[in-house]
Design a protein around this nucleic acid. Structure first.
Lengths: 151, 151
DNA sequence: AATCAAGTGCAACTTGGTTGCATTTGATTA
DNA sequence: TAATCAAATGCAACCAAGTTGCACTTGATT
């Protein structure tokens, strides 16, 4: 069993932790504990999480400042490690970008329970025609409705 | 020249004002002055506006409470007179639904100046395949990048 | 081990949007 | 056309997501 220690904090590494550490290091920026831990959580999750949800899960055992988490998420978005999704409740949801799961797919947002699901089989047209002078960075397709549990 | 008077306020009617009044009355709910005036403004505009922008334009000559405007916009969205668009800045933008301009089209959001443009020629597939038990209400396609002025 | 910019924690702040409640107003009916 | 009353409005206070400034800590480099 591998253990990682930082100050008084002792952490059990798992596969996701190692993977997260590697991904953070690959960016060239500093591989800090909070960055690795946050990315690790997002690697484990299978649906997009809000800042609040991430904070609650990470704070079960150890402290993590709200602001730091905002900055970590912002940094990870900029570094293309994760992507964020806008919902009807004005709250961002975050999900990891793996090689298999890039952000070129659609999202389903349940307007009753606000849960977000990725519709991976939805493929987006890569080169839509835009007005002259417009430059494309990203396409986001969001489907709204009720999920299976809320129907 | 047609004039409409309510309390001390005197209003010059134009084509859009008449049109707005008609649309509000068609809903069956009460045709209040603020509803008509707000819809009138959105009919005149050719690109989506934020709550802030609407407020500023309406308050040039006459007072309109922030909260009332929020409620008017919410009501109009519910009544399908307008639709709202989520941007990267967490701010809703509102645009009128006319017969010619329904909300079944894509939006372009400039990530530098935050201006939103409607991409009317983008047609959305009406019946995408969803997981079993999922119910579709609405599809939203957002294209992000730089607009002609910001490129 | 020493160094120091990058990263973090804390407090205070900004902003978009909401809630509760007293007052006003548009449509209806007498 | 006046009386009526639920629907709509205005005001104040509130909430929650996200941001800023600054002192303190830490990961990588020497």
């Amino acid at each position: 069993m591998i253990i990682w220690q930082i100050g008084k904090i002792v952490v059990l590494k798992n596969n996701f932790f190692e993977k997260a550490k590697e991904l953070v290091k690959q960016t060239g920026d500093r591989a800090t504990y909070h960055r690795i831990r946050t990315l690790c959580l997002l690697l484990e999750e299978h649906h997009p999480l809000t800042h609040r949800e991430i904070e609650e899960r990470l704070n079960v055992k150890e402290q993590l400042d709200r602001v730091t988490l905002y900055r970590v998420l912002e940094w990870m978005t900029k570094k293309n490690l994760i992507h964020k999704i806008a919902g009807d409740d004005r709250v961002w949801r975050f999900r990891v970008n793996t090689d298999l799961h890039s952000h070129h797919h659609a999202h389903f947002i349940c307007t009753r329970c606000t849960k977000v699901t990725c519709l991976d089989e939805f493929k987006l047209k890569p080169n839509p025609s835009l007005p002259i002078g417009y430059l494309l960075h990203d396409i986001e397709l969001t489907v709204k409705g009720f999920c299976a549990e809320c129907t």
